[in-house]
């Protein structure tokens, strides 16, 4: 590049307008996304409680968090939620996408209606589910009683509360991801299916050897994004269970929120969030490796 060797001033004069066009967006993203990332990293090496001086403590916060049982518990809850909601959400989305790919009359209406759960806000859906899950008067337990299943303590039992939270997560995830997978299915050329049929492939063989491999970029995208999203789960659970009963559904983010904004331990909370970020990166990497390997 010859441009790079020009003096800075000449570059700016020549390309100034272009930089002015990108400046507002880059300022917003830099100041409110990139800078906070660096600040979080810096603060994670300090003990700072909002008031008082910022004291450098080296890796002490990281040593503390490794032995913090509440953080470990929050991470475990997050992992359980992520595994459950991503698995059922993506399988559900795949089933929906395949059904929505059928050329039958009225399919447009189904496509429109089945996306609706993705539009309900975290807070509202959690409120509505809280009502559906109501042990005594909830619709869900009534439906179950019709098939002879006794009242389930959805939100008051430590075991069932997690099931309740995962069901809600999968309900949203399936609806949100189905159109993305549907786009993937529609990008597969029909001639490939014809070729498979001529070769005498069964429906299952078609699905296994044509659909799944060609859909892989889309499933990979959906699974990675779903994992990142589910790791940050906060609002849904905060409103549905408050993280309870007795922290049984408290995700790691809620613990970080508590440490930062209730206990005011900003330094430690920053270390917790950096640790979570690293864990998420590692998991995403493993997930991508695993899905790529299955391809080979």
């Amino acid at each position: 590049m010859t441009v790079a060797r020009q003096p800075l001033l000449a570059t700016l004069r020549r390309h100034g307008p272009a930089y002015l066009f990108v400046a507002p967006a880059l300022l917003v993203l830099g100041l409110f996304t990139l800078a906070p990332m660096l600040v979080a990293l810096a603060l994670s090496f300090t003990s700072w409680n909002i008031v008082g001086p910022v004291k450098f403590v080296g890796l002490k916060n990281y040593a503390l968090l490794l032995a913090d049982p509440t953080f470990a518990h929050g991470l475990w809850n997050t992992l359980v939620y992520a595994t459950g909601s991503v698995t059922f959400g993506v399988i559900g989305a795949l089933a929906l996408a395949i059904a929505l790919d059928q050329k039958v009359p009225g399919i447009g209406a189904f496509r429109a209606l089945l996306f609706l759960p993705a539009l309900m806000s975290e807070v509202i859906s959690a409120m509505v589910f809280q009502w559906l899950y109501n042990e005594q008067y909830g619709l869900l337990n009534y439906m179950l009683s019709l098939v002879g299943i006794g009242a389930i303590p959805w939100l008051t039992s430590t075991t069932w509360a997690m099931v309740a939270v995962v069901i809600m997560g999968a309900w949203v995830g399936a609806a949100y991801n189905a159109p993305i997978l549907l786009t993937g299915l529609q990008s597969i050329s029909p001639t490939l299916y014809e070729a498979a049929r001529i070769d005498g492939a069964s429906r299952w063989q078609e699905f296994r050897h044509v659909t799944l491999p060609l859909l892989r970029p889309f499933t990979l995208y959906v699974m990675v994004m779903a994992l990142i999203g589910s790791f940050q789960v906060f609002g849904r659970i905060f409103v549905l269970t408050g993280g309870g009963p007795v922290d049984a559904t408290m995700p790691a983010v809620q613990y970080i929120y508590r440490v930062a904004f209730t206990f005011n331990q900003v330094g430690y909370a920053s270390a917790l969030s950096v640790a979570m970020f690293l864990l998420l990166m590692a998991l995403t990497w493993i997930q991508m490796r695993w899905l790529k390997e299955k391809e080979a």
């Binding site: 800078a35 906070p36 979080a40 970080i256 930062a260 904004f261 900003v266 909370a269 969030s273 950096v274």
Partner: peptide, 13 residues
């Protein structure tokens, strides 16, 4: 970048 890392410094900024 997940919001979980940026939310605290964002508040401070």
């Amino acid at each position: 970048l997940p919001a979980v890392v940026t939310i605290i410094p964002l508040f401070l900024i």
